[in-house]
Design a protein around this nucleic acid. Sequence first.
DNA 1: ATCAAGAGTGACTAGACAGTCAATTAAAAT
DNA 2: ATTTTAATTGACTGTCTAGTCACTCTTGAT
Lengths: 188, 188
Amino acid sequence: MAKPRSEEKRSAIMAAAVRVIAAQGLGAPTATIAQEAGVANGSLFTYFETKADLFNQLYLELKSELASVSLKGLPVTADLRKQMLHAWSRSMDWAVSNPGKRRALAQLGVSDEITPASREAGHKTMTGIAALLERSRAKGPMRQVPMGFIVAIMNAMGDATMDFMIHDPTHAKKHCKAGFDALWRMLA
Amino acid sequence: MAKPRSEEKRSAIMAAAVRVIAAQGLGAPTATIAQEAGVANGSLFTYFETKADLFNQLYLELKSELASVSLKGLPVTADLRKQMLHAWSRSMDWAVSNPGKRRALAQLGVSDEITPASREAGHKTMTGIAALLERSRAKGPMRQVPMGFIVAIMNAMGDATMDFMIHDPTHAKKHCKAGFDALWRMLA
DNA sequence: ATCAAGAGTGACTAGACAGTCAATTAAAAT
DNA sequence: ATTTTAATTGACTGTCTAGTCACTCTTGAT
């Protein structure tokens, strides 16, 4: 009964936000994001109530994209280590081929604009990987350590590995494997 | 030949900045920091040229405090693992007993206000620990991996461990040890 | 065709905030 | 004691930006 919102515009704003945040950080003006998306600055606020709202939605979208990409094509019949390696490599590939998204996600992850609810929701998108991780450590030396701690360490190692792969792309493959081997040595 | 600057005031501003940044993030107004330090807001700018200058100096001060604390009382005659464990534990203790400084340092570390020069200088304060790390990995499975990557991973694991210790202080000791054991398994 | 509802626009507003400056005060030098 | 130099102060300014609003334009329904 009225003009519907355009999914295209919404995602144009999201994509623009990724580019602008990657380049200028979270302090970037909403007007810049709107311009980059090719919409009037007022329009941004029909799709997102506030700047923080945009940030929270973007955080969730990137997080779940990363999570789903990691599990795509998982070799479910292979042994555990192969499955973990698959998920790990997929994450790293995503980071390397989407450096802007990776940068934006890293910034959003440490921002205090992101609500606890969003973090919680972001966590939920990772349950598939968490399950894999849980099985991996079940019989290893970290079997007594709280799962949250292990997730945090894996994320931290993933972050460090991504940074290094992006910073030194020539040996990206090597770094990816080195990061995974280190992780596996730690928990299995 | 004139009224000299007061070291007291300088450090009052630094300490105030730590508290305010921990509570409000890097977006906190300079006026709030000045007020918290008990000086006029104009005075902040006789001690620090710009807000970014304050941030950079604070980053360096915290980083070097952490580095020096880590090596204090290092048992230089003991075996390598004991030395690393000592440095690791010292870092973690510092983080737990100075949660504000830890929070502020974490925020500053990811800020784009921090110049490459400051990061470089911050790195230099860590050379003692880096040397320890270098010796630790020399004969282990990571002997081929670039040192920068190992430093990054250690920092990341340290960050994750600190977060977890602060978040769950009851079992802080246990988490500290679990973090170190994981690190050691990874590189030695 | 006409209408209702709401998307789209961009100039505008209200508030915030880093950094300045004229006046004042305090220390050091002679 | 006097002078000189710079610290100290807080009101002030210039700028920036999130969010609003009056108006126009589209769309779908009747």
